[in-house]
């Protein structure tokens, strides 16, 4: 079973049918928190969780795609308001252990700072890219107005998606190699990278975007 982990259900969450050709079950934070589940340590292989009302032992999972970089307290409406911040930390810790301990492929593996890989902001991506010899836009960040640096960049030229060591829908431009080099430097399976019209890096995201069909296909191939 392939699992796609989303923050919340509702209209914005992908349905299992909408994920084709990725054959996956969708599970929300609420389902994970409420459905009976137990993680063991040591003996993680005995651990089980509830998916679509069914008990699933972790060994049945063949792959996980995680769309939740951090657990937002405001989405935990199934807890009393005064408990949400604490429970968000607990759920984050639960997911971090769970996603790190699975033997199957996980896109992306968590790091200490994010559940979807390195929690790199556009600023961090810029610095990492420079260290990897990739051209970037000039840096200019001020703590009094850091929001601009924290926001995902708007696509202004081209965006390149890498999955499992290859470029999805290659552009044939310099940006393909640069995106691959950045994914390697960040040690992530999935990476979406934005470049401007001069092939300078604008930013990147390690949170999978499953809306484009070629990305879902690439993930299906990677997790097969």
């Amino acid at each position: 079973m392939i699992l796609v982990l989303v923050a919340a259900g509702g209209a914005s969450a992908p349905s299992a049918a909408a994920l084709a050709p990725l054959e996956a079950e969708v599970v929300t934070l609420e389902e994970l928190a409420a459905g009976p589940g137990t993680l063991y340590d040591p003996g993680f292989e005995r651990s089980a969780l509830t998916v679509s009302g069914r008990r699933v032992v972790v060994g049945e999972l063949t792959g996980v795609v995680n769309l939740v970089p951090a657990v937002p307290p405001e989405l935990l409406t199934f807890y009393a308001e005064e408990e949400r911040e604490y429970q968000a930390g607990e759920l984050h810790a639960w997911l971090s252990f769970f996603l790190s301990s699975l033997r199957c492929r996980v896109v992306n593996r968590p790091t200490p700072v994010s559940l979807t890989g390195p929690a790199l902001t556009p600023l961090s991506w810029t610095r990492l890219a420079r260290a990897a010899g990739i051209a970037t836009v000039p840096l200019a960040v001020d703590s009094r107005d850091v929001r601009a640096a924290l926001r995902e960049p708007e696509p202004d030229g081209v965006d390149v998606v890498c999955v499992g060591g290859r470029v999805v829908s290659p552009t044939g431009s310099l940006s393909d190699k640069a995106a691959m080099r950045l994914a390697e430097a960040a040690d992530v399976t999935y990476l979406r990278v934005w470049f401007d019209r001069d092939w300078r890096l604008l930013g990147a995201s390690s949170v999978p975007d499953l809306r484009p069909e070629p990305t879902r296909r690439a993930l299906a191939d990677y997790l097969a």
Binding site: H92, A93, W94, S96, F97, S101, P112, V113
Partner: peptide, 18 residues
């Protein structure tokens, strides 16, 4: 900061402890 975050999950930290 990334090392500071190493105890955000006690069970995850149990792995390097062992």
């Amino acid at each position: 900061p990334s090392a500071e975050a190493s105890n955000h999950s006690k069970l995850l930290q149990a792995l390097p402890i062992r």
